[in-house]
Amino acid sequence: MELVRPPDDPAAPRRLRRASFLLGFSMGGFFDGILLHQILQWHHLLSGVQTGALGSLSAQVAMDGVFHAIMYVIAAAGLIELFRARSAVSSSAPIRPRWGHFWIGFGVWHITDALLSHWITGIHRIKMDAENLLVWDLAWFVVFGVAPLLYGWRTRHHRRPPPNGGAGKTIASLFAVAVLAGGMVNLFPLRSDADTTVIALRPGASAGAMFQALADTDARVVWSDPQGLVWVMTAIPTAQKLGLFASGAMYVSGSVVPAGCSAWLKAGASS
């Protein structure tokens, strides 16, 4: 007796393309948020908002969390579509994402972010402490937006990455170079006029010990959180920064780690 398989659902290819796009879009958001918001700390989602309730550091970090939560929802939608596409196919052949549509989604995220966040609303720019904000915006737009989009469009009909695909290797190399270059720029900044320092105290530590350690310096307070656990200060001598760990600090920017977002916090910000 011959086993007759039911026909494949004609919607399966469409669902697979949609799943691949959604996964690429969400991965673009995660790439942006994890690298730029957390590792390099070049900006938060609302870094361009410096006043009101959303201008505080705690609110900035919280909105980054909301952003990542939204990316989780989009990624979950992509996984659901991937599962539905697999269920609609009667054969036992493995279902693979359409990598062309994945890269289209990845590029669309960065293009959308640039248009809406950088240039229309201005809620943040790629590198908030850069002297020329537009140069960084355009470089990111081209490398992580336009290039993946064009590569994905060219390969959108391929069910798997082309063998020995030069374009795919080029994009991967650009990603690696950009991440390494960004880390080097963050560790060894090209400009030295921003001397603000972020100090996070250990739970239970007193700010008095910190001020006692800085008593003989010209250090000034720029901002602090209401609990007195996070301080932004200026004019702290580099030689004094490591000593703050003995005074209750668990994090001091510019001591043994990159300055991150403290590099674009300016003196005169509201406390």
Rank of each mutant, 00 (worst) to 15 (best):
G122K: 12
A88V: 09
L174Q: 01
P163C: 04
A12F: 11
L16I: 06
I74R: 03
A167P: 01
P258R: 03
S270P: 09
R15Q: 14
G33H: 02
P163T: 00
W109E: 01
I34M: 10
V61S: 06
K266H: 10
G228Y: 09
A167E: 02
G29N: 01
P10N: 07
R125S: 12
L133K: 11
S117T: 13
A53G: 06
G152R: 03
V232A: 11
S92H: 15
C261P: 12
R5E: 15
S58Q: 15
F83W: 13
R159T: 08
S117W: 14
A207W: 13
V252P: 04
A19W: 04
T51I: 13
P148D: 00
D129M: 02
H157G: 08
T112Q: 08
V146L: 04
V232W: 08
S270D: 13
Q227F: 13
G183T: 01
P10E: 13
K241G: 01
V135M: 11
D8P: 09
L3D: 07
F67Y: 10
A167L: 05
A130Y: 06
V4Y: 14
T121D: 04
V146Q: 02
D64K: 01
S270G: 08
H118L: 11
A88N: 04
G24K: 03
D195Y: 10
S192T: 10
H118E: 14
A235D: 15
Q227M: 15
L244K: 07
P6E: 14
P6F: 13
H124G: 01
F141Y: 11
F188V: 05
P13H: 07
M184A: 07
P6T: 11
G33E: 01
N164M: 06
A76G: 13
Q227R: 15
L35T: 13
V185S: 02
A259F: 07
G166T: 04
P189F: 00
G105S: 01
D216R: 14
A263K: 03
S270M: 10
G243R: 03
L265T: 04
P7D: 06
P258M: 04
Q227A: 11
H101C: 07
F141S: 04
T197L: 10
P203C: 05
W264G: 02
W99A: 08
P189E: 00
R96H: 11
A172H: 03
G204M: 05
T51K: 14
L115K: 02
S192G: 06
A147W: 00
G152H: 00
Y151F: 06
L57E: 12
H101V: 13
G55D: 05
G243F: 09
I95S: 02
R220Q: 11
P10T: 08
A215N: 15
A167S: 04
L187S: 07
F211P: 08
S20F: 03
V66S: 01
V142R: 05
S224F: 13
T121R: 07
S91P: 04
S92I: 08
I34G: 03
V185K: 03
Q212R: 14
L36C: 10
N132G: 00
S47G: 08
A114L: 07
R5A: 10
L229F: 12
D218E: 11
A205W: 09
P97E: 05
S87W: 15
N186I: 00
H44Q: 14
